[in-house]
Simulated assay, not measured.
Amino acid sequence: MEKNFKEVSVKANLFKEVNVFINDAKLDDSSVLRVVKDQKVTGEDEATYAKLIGSEFQDGVIEVQVLSRLLPDAPEHARGFIGMAFRIDEQDTEFESFYVRPTNSRCAIQLRRNRTVQYFSYPNFKYFHSRETNPGEYESYADIGLDEWIDLKLVVEGAHGKLYINTAEQPALVVNDMKHGANAKGALGFFVDIGTEGFFRNLRYTPSK
């Protein structure tokens, strides 16, 4: 698998803004991509990502490092939402996503801790859909925090997805029925949601054959 990886320079000119604003930045002496959601998009778990132009992914591995901060005007329910969108269709009307909520991880409320990691599928299976139909099945815990680099590794095979965090040997979240099915494929994106100032670096992935 290693030799098939494609490494990507995370430069703003390589990405399309989809309901976000992006710019090149420096953080910890690294060149990074900064991504902030367009506040005109009021819903959550929407198509809000920097989309990698010309990318196509179906099965394989996606690896990236992410860092999340809360914006000064972040609402009370902001959680530092940050992660990956993948198998994005050309019209930005369908995609899969795994993301994290760094503020939840070390919260004193156990229920919020259990909701640190999230899977959703756009447009018909967002976080509130899964909590209504399958509470707890598409969320889990991981030890992460705001303003620290987090390694995300997503392994995808058909309708199965596993998210590994910070080089852990076991996945933080396993999903066996991703909602767009085994044959979906499409572009990659850097996902953020409300109140997040997101930074991304060191992206590599297995492109579709």
Rank of each mutant, 00 (worst) to 15 (best):
I88L: 09
G145A: 13
G136M: 10
S97Y: 08
K153S: 04
E96N: 02
N124Q: 13
C107R: 11
Y119H: 07
S121H: 06
D89K: 08
E148S: 15
T93E: 13
A142L: 01
L111R: 13
E157L: 07
T103A: 09
F98S: 09
V156Y: 01
T116F: 03
R131H: 12
E96P: 00
F98K: 10
D143P: 01
W149T: 10
E148W: 12
Q91T: 10
R112Y: 15
F128N: 14
E90W: 09
G136N: 11
P135A: 10
E94M: 10
E157I: 06
F125W: 14
N124P: 05
L111H: 11
S130M: 13
T93P: 04
P102F: 04
Y127G: 09
N114C: 06
P102H: 03
Y141K: 03
Q110T: 14
G136K: 11
T103S: 11
I88E: 02
G158W: 02
E137D: 08
D89V: 03
R115I: 13
Q91I: 09
F120T: 06
F128T: 15
R113C: 07
V155T: 10
F128M: 14
N124G: 14
Q118I: 13
S140F: 01
I150C: 01
N134K: 15
P135M: 09
T133C: 11
R106K: 12
F95N: 02
V117E: 03
E132D: 12
G145T: 09
D151F: 05
D89Q: 05
S130Q: 14
K153M: 04
K126R: 14
Y119E: 02
N134P: 04
L152E: 02
I109N: 12
N124L: 14
E132P: 09
G158Y: 03
D89Y: 04
F120Q: 02
R115Y: 11
R101N: 07
D147S: 03
T93F: 05
I88S: 05
I109R: 14
R106M: 09
Y141H: 01
Q118T: 07
R115S: 15
L111V: 14
Q118A: 07
N124S: 13
R106I: 07
T103H: 08
S121N: 09
R113Y: 03
L146H: 00
E157M: 07
R101L: 06
A142D: 01
V156M: 05
E90Q: 15
S121Y: 07
D151H: 10
P102E: 02
Y122L: 11
L154Y: 02
C107P: 02
Y127R: 11
G145C: 09
A108Y: 15
S97D: 11
S130P: 05
G136E: 07
N124E: 15
